[in-house]
Amino acid sequence: MRIKAFKLERLFARYAEQAKYTLSQSSCESCSMKEILDMADPECKKLWDNLSLGYTRPAGFAPLREAISKRYTSLRPSDILELTPEEGIFIFMNNMLEPGDEVIVMHPTLPSLYELPRTLGCKVIKWPLEVTSWGWRLDVNFLAENISPKTKLLIMNIPNNPTGYIPVRTELDRILNLADRMGTWVFNEETYRGMEHDPAAALPSLADIYPRATVIGGLNKYGLPGTRMGWLASKNRQLIEECAGYKDYTTYCNNAPGEILATIAMRNAPDLLQRNHKIVLENLGMAEAFFKKHRDLFQWIQPNGGSTAFPRLLPPYDVTEMCERAMTEKKLLIIGERAFGLDTNHFRVGLGRLDFSKALAVFSDIADEIQAKRAEAAN
């Protein structure tokens, strides 16, 4: 299998060490080892102190699967397969899809969600998110016109990275009804479920409400992305077992320290979510003020959830040129739309870090310089 370069991750790999500031991180503020261990209950403290660095169980650590299952309303620990989040996407796609299958993917989204089906020989139909006067939206009529009994899989990413889009419940129900009528499987990358900016906008996991749904989650939003711990969840026992068998050819089992740390985190999930959600909302306020001030340079599209936004640099300026200048002149890393397979002049803004104000201050200097050059050219 020959896969196209993962442009998003290659940009981070190329520039992360050179960058002094980063505006486009999707992960939330990371926790220290001490912070997590201080949260440990007596059982987890004992598990940590007596930890063996041998092989772990391939399906996962029972206390962790139990803790993860509590984030759902109807899933059992046996419905959950532990793995690395990106590994989970790779395993699911390879297990589910065959050459010639038709797949519909909401877009923009994480590049692996459309590149892996394409590499596997599927017909990929991109279902575009659109900008309206009230923010991002999915045209459900587009889905109605394109989904058919030939559609094997509908791939979603809600809350969406990079846009922060969340549908309302009536829209989600219509989407799932269309999928159900066609016998279509649904896969949702729902890493940021639980980080809706308005709690009233919260949606249930698709794994709880659609029988042919599989979802992926991880510890990104909890502040432990470095543990590389995540999970696939589905009520379809055969699918979970098949994915577990495929995992024998990838990581086989998870890392022992990560399982204990993840168990502690998931047992304290509400506190960790609240911690990072507070950071996101504070940074969102700063971002709104910045883009309002510079409305003649940028189009701000309000996100509804998660830790990212996807504003647009207005013409005649080019976002790729802006990103390159930011890195070269200011050591500020900005991820532009080409990393997501677009040419619409958007760029990702990450709202989950404590140092966001520093990156925004550097970005403000860039915006001021662009405006100064515009004024000079006008004179």
Rank of each mutant, 00 (worst) to 15 (best):
A202C: 08
N254Y: 03
P316D: 09
C323N: 03
N95C: 09
L261Y: 02
R76V: 05
R137K: 11
G164H: 04
L47A: 14
H277W: 10
T308L: 12
T84C: 07
E337R: 06
P159K: 03
I260Y: 01
K45A: 10
C31W: 02
L333N: 03
L83Q: 03
E190Y: 05
C122H: 02
W48A: 09
L116D: 01
I279D: 10
E369T: 12
I334F: 02
N345M: 09
A289K: 15
T119G: 06
N255H: 07
P199I: 15
C243W: 06
D248V: 11
V103D: 02
G285R: 14
Y317D: 11
L272V: 05
T328H: 15
Y192E: 04
R10V: 15
F310Y: 12
C122D: 03
L239C: 14
L360Q: 03
K45G: 03
P63F: 07
E86P: 01
I209Q: 04
L154R: 00
L153I: 10
E115S: 03
I260E: 00
P111Q: 08
I301N: 00
I301K: 01
G305Q: 02
E43F: 09
K7Y: 09
E35T: 11
M106V: 06
E87D: 08
F363V: 02
L154Y: 00
T109D: 02
F298N: 04
L8G: 00
W185C: 00
P159L: 04
E189P: 00
M327C: 12
R312N: 04
G135C: 07
T170N: 11
D41I: 10
F356E: 01
I175Y: 01
D365Y: 13
E115W: 02
T344M: 13
S32M: 06
F310R: 01
S112P: 04
L113V: 03
E115K: 03
T132R: 07
G341C: 07
N146T: 05
M1Y: 14
S78A: 14
T191G: 05
